[in-house]
Nucleic acid binder design. Structure first.
Length: 421
RNA sequence: GGAGGCGUCGCCUAGUCCGGUCUAUGGCGCCCGCCUGCUAAGCGGGUUGAGGGUCAAACCUCUCGCGGGUUCAAAUCCCGCCGCCUCCGCCA
């Protein structure tokens, strides 16, 4: 949700942002009109209500015919107040509905266009030079690490078991991510993965992404696709204190995604699955600090990718490919040798005050309160296994373990196939 | 699943039975000022949030968990919901 004052004071900025995203511009004028009519109907209601209240005070003091006359007038007035209130409520609701339509205003410098219009900021590390490339599933199966056949038997397609070193590596990635986060001052959090509709809506996931989300109809709860949802809801309806700097949380959770629109895409292995684990960074900070905080989150992501010894590139995601909440988004993509392409491993979004406004998260300001900025970024997921296995594979089908992960696999520096590959 | 209790402006709390004087009491904490070698104590004032309005103010409206209802009038009466607590049952 955008700040109405921005829409009133600088509608052209909102129009330009909508245009860059390839989204509707007309909503700006509809919003301005709805705001106008809300204020008019509200003023009318408040005028009548004030009159009703002062009349109400005279009644207990009056008596006889005079009192009866006052009662008659008050009764008429009560009906008028009720009608005016209904009109004002209706206008408010119309405005609230419209206010949910525009996406966050993009930050200057975000590339225009769609999915393919990203800008590559940098490429880090060496892509491996492999004669024979095995993909992550082939490697994972031979190491006894990944079992998608039994995953499908038990739960269906896009489910999997991680076994043996697979389970250990996943725990290693996540634990390492958590340790790094705590070291950097984040508060570690294990979050709920079922959330109420208001929280899901507040984070902006019920709009264009609604099909992606599992819903438990009987209980009116949603399964989260990322702990960002729970961490954003953590301080909902609160006034937080940012005087000692940003509030930083590292969430650990299972993540659930329906992958409704991706039939036939990445069906092999564990690249695109219905359930995985993730460590997510989440920051609450002052609006003016958000851009710098975004760079810091990106820095922590890159440090984690470095620890995994992975070749990756950083892209500045184009406006049309941002989620509705994000004003800017950087993705880190690791090299995927089996497909000779880049694979998204992390994504960090600066949501400025967009989420906080919906979730009613504020801080004290010189005068009153104001919405805070929220940001999120990935520090490790199950998917990282894919890049780790493929980039560190050796000619004989074994896999070298990055230094930082060795403690999690019993100190081993190489993982050997458990049966003929 | 069943029974009961509770939810008031940061925290605690008065008010709810019996509707109007609630423009919500008092304490703690916090902020400003006074007093005072310093500190403490004492004294005075301020201290929920949102919206409207205004150059700014004044001022107005809403806000007693949330949403409805009754009434000229609701913290107070009625209904529904949510949350927390206690007990019982069931299950891990």
């Amino acid at each position: 949700m955008l700040d109405l004052r921005v829409i009133r004071d600088d509608p052209d900025r909102v129009r330009a942002s909508q245009r860059a995203r390839g989204e509707t511009e007309e909503v700006v004028d509809e919003l301005l009109a709805a705001d106008e009519s809300r204020r008019a109907s509200l003023a009318e209601f408040e005028r009548l209500r004030a009159e009703q209240k002062s009349l109400g005070k005279e009644i207990p003091r009056a008596s006889g015919d005079e009192k009866q006359a006052l009662l008659d007038r008050a009764k008429d007035l009560a009906a008028a107040v009720k009608a005016a209130e209904a009109a004002a409520d209706g206008a408010q609701r119309r405005l609230d509905e419209l206010a949910m339509v525009p996406s966050n205003i993009i930050i200057d410098g975000v590339p225009e266009g769609g999915e393919d219009d990203y800008v590559v900021l940098r490429e880090v590390g060496e892509r491996p030079d492999l004669e024979k490339v095995r993909d992550h599933l082939e490697l994972g199966e031979s190491l006894g690490a990944i079992d998608t056949e039994r995953g499908a038997k038990v739960s269906g397609s896009r489910f999997y078991f991680l076994t043996g070193v697979g389970a250990q590596l996943e725990l290693g990635i996540l634990n390492l991510a958590m340790s790094k986060a705590v070291e950097a001052g984040f508060t570690p959090v294990i979050t709920p993965t079922l959330v109420r509709p208001e929280i899901m809506a507040g984070t902006g996931f019920l709009g264009a992404h609604a099909d992606e989300i599992y819903r438990l109809e009987r209980d009116d709860l949603y399964l989260v696709g990322t702990s960002e949802v729970a961490l954003a809801g953590f301080h909902a309806d609160e006034i937080v204190d940012l005087s000692d700097g940003p509030l930083r949380y590292a969430g650990w959770s299972a993540c659930y995604r329906r992958e409704a629109g991706s039939h036939g895409k990445d069906t092999r292995g564990i690249i695109r699955v219905h359930q995985f684990h993730k460590v997510e960074m989440f920051s609450y900070c002052r609006e003016e600090d958000a851009a710098a905080e975004h760079e810091r989150l990106l820095g922590w992501e890159e440090s984690m990718l470095g620890a995994m010894e992975l070749p990756y590139r950083v892209i500045d995601v184009a406006a049309g490919d941002l989620g509705s909440s994000a004003a800017r988004k950087f993705d880190c993509e690791a090299w995927l040798p089996s497909q000779s392409r880049w694979l998204e491993l992390t994504s960090t979004s600066n949501c400025t005050t967009f989420q906080a406004r919906r979730l009613n998260i504020r801080e004290r300001a010189e005068k009153g309160t104001r919405s805070v900025g929220t940001l999120n970024g990935t520090l490790g997921t199950t998917r990282w296994l894919v890049a780790i296995l493929e980039n560190h594979q050796l000619p004989d089908g074994s896999v070298a373990v990055p230094q930082a992960l060795r403690p999690y696999v019993g100190g081993r520096d190489v993982l050997e196939p458990v049966r003929a590959g």
